[in-house]
Design a protein around this nucleic acid. Structure first.
Lengths: 259, 259
DNA sequence: CCTTGAATATCGGTG
DNA sequence: CACCGATGTTCAAGG
């Protein structure tokens, strides 16, 4: 069944026209409508930061949850925005159409003044679908727990998520010589801060246990040379692990069908 | 169909209509035009991850730089997207209008199939303005330099951006008892890694100077309790600072004028 | 080109 | 509500 829901459009309106158009179609139930404006505007923002954006042609999107996005013709990110829960008012000021948005906690406000408006549309969109991410990554921690030999022969894992002073150790165990082993797992690229983290854990365990020797292993899909050098400096070890992705059968079928 | 000089609009087109509309107005110079589609669609994505999004009414934005955003009626983030540099093709498949986007390195593809289209517009937008943000971290550093007493009475700043082994110290000076003081400034929320950083700097200075005592102060607008505890553990200090915005005269005027 | 760190990060899960 | 960790993070700066 094809459902065609209402969309209201106005092109090239003057300020007052735009205002009455929005008052008529948006103000009643803004929590059910999206509003899109294309036009030449300038933007002021004050809140967590403060910014000014001079005149230019942009696309403004007001969503049902109060999000307001100001998109330039390039870039993935909006150049300005207001977070969900923001309240928006519309008015004219010196014949210019103004969109003014406020948010509480954190306190933020954004003001968009339009010099020219090319298009406004207002629509009640319905979308109940949720994204299914099917490339379920096999949990590396699970993988190591179920088969510690993938890290090293004779390794026994004793605990996962072991709390120590500096934070939470991903995996804790002992090697075949009964030396304590700390394993820090990173999902993507390991960074220098991962090394610091691991180093702190090793120190914590060294202090708290009677073992003079404590090993630390950093596990990640990719470990830059810089990080490896630092690991060597601190007497730590590493293991580059592969990310395994499991697809469900029906997703396999879908993938083949669509691409 | 309503046509204006700077923006082309079509409403409620069938698949073939939509296709010829886009071929006519977009395909010539996609690097100069933005394209926006509102309609009932489903989205498949495969690349760094893999995902499926079932039918629903969404807003699709193709930007001049190849970015493609799929926006649901809620949320600040696009539910699906393709990065800048992506190439997009349009065609019909079993009478459905399809937008297919590819990106190289990393290899990613996204396919949007439309069941119903409410609106398409194509526009050549011009926006040369850049965002001016005021209230940067350097301002906080400036603030402390110009008035060290905002941190502590008797504090003297000797150097900013002092290079040590582990990195760059934001501010270095001495307190009223001539004890070296290292100040690490964070623009927003301080994290545990900030503590590690500061701790390394303190150790560096302790090693390189003859002072047995070296103080380290973490300055940030917000410091979580966890981080404070860690600071206490390591004998470090902190100061929650307020972001003061130093505005240029014209910005002052703007702020006063607009808010 | 690679790497690093910041962000008005956003967003979801957990206590 | 606060905090923490992941993100298909994105983005800009620096080597």
């Amino acid at each position: 069944m094809v459902v065609r829901r209402a969309i209201k459009i106005i092109t090239n309106p003057e300020g007052e026209e735009a205002l009455s158009f929005i008052k008529k179609h948006h103000q009643k139930k803004p929590e059910k409508t999206v509003l899109h404006i294309v036009g030449d505007c300038m933007v002021e923002y004050d809140g967590r930061a403060t910014s000014f954006l001079d005149w230019g042609q942009r696309m403004i999107l007001l969503k049902q949850d109060g999000n307001v996005l100001v998109h330039q013709p390039v870039m993935r990110e909006p150049i300005n925005w207001q977070p969900a829960g923001s309240k928006t008012k519309f008015y004219t000021e010196e014949e210019l159409f103004v969109v003014s948005t406020r948010h509480m906690n954190p306190s933020e406000k954004m003001k968009i003044r339009f010099r020219t408006i090319l298009l406004i549309y207002i629509a009640q969109l319905r979308d109940t679908s949720v994204l299914r991410i099917v490339g379920m990554e096999t949990d590396v921690v699970d993988q190591i727990v179920s088969d510690p030999s993938c890290i090293e022969e004779g390794l026994r894992i004793q605990k996962r998520e072991k709390q120590v002073k500096s934070g939470m150790i991903d995996l804790f165990g002992y090697d075949k010589k009964h030396v304590p082993v700390i394993i820090e797992v990173k999902r993507s690229v390991a960074s220098i801060s991962s090394v610091h983290q691991l180093r702190m854990y090793v120190n914590d365990i060294r202090r708290d246990s009677d073992h003079a020797e404590v090993r630390g292993i950093l596990c990640a899909p990719r470990i830059p040379d810089m990080v490896k050098h630092l690991l060597v400096d601190y007497g730590l070890e590493w293991q580059e692990i592969e990310r395994k992705i499991l697809l469900h059968d029906d997703d396999q079928r879908s993938l083949k069908e669509y691409f």
